[in-house]
Amino acid sequence: MTALARAAAVVRWIVGVGAATAVLLLFTLEGAPDVPADAAPTEVDLLVDEGRAIYAQRCATCHGDAGQGGQGPRLAGTVIVNYPDATDQIAIVAGGADGMPAFAETLSDDEIAAVVGFTRFGLS
């Protein structure tokens, strides 16, 4: 057996363990522990709550109360896929696109971050 073949065997073993671990994680991470009901809200919770109010005022008319879409595209369950990088989505909200108005003049940076956070984590 050549050195290259030995290396390939070792790498194959390592990758095999990695693949098995990944499959295991897919099922064990599925049921992440629930947050206790009396737990203090996290920063993300607060951001989502703030974003929910802004969304209801500024976005729901076009994107639907639950983000199901309407005049504007569906947002529920889609924004993380379409905008894996949140800064891309923030740029759309701030600068507008495809008939959607720009909100850079009417919302602060924090408010834009909040509403983006809500669409990513508060809509499902």
Partner: peptide, 30 residues
């Protein structure tokens, strides 16, 4: 041997990517 080694490494390198795809994002048709 090198052909197999490169294929195995390629598969290994892709694992975190596919894990993120199906665990974080799921199968999407948006």
């Amino acid at each position: 041997d090198l052909h197999r080694l490169l294929g195995t490494i390629a598969f290994g390198v892709s694992l975190p990517v596919v894990f993120h795809c199906i665990w974080t994002l799921g199968y999407q048709t948006t």
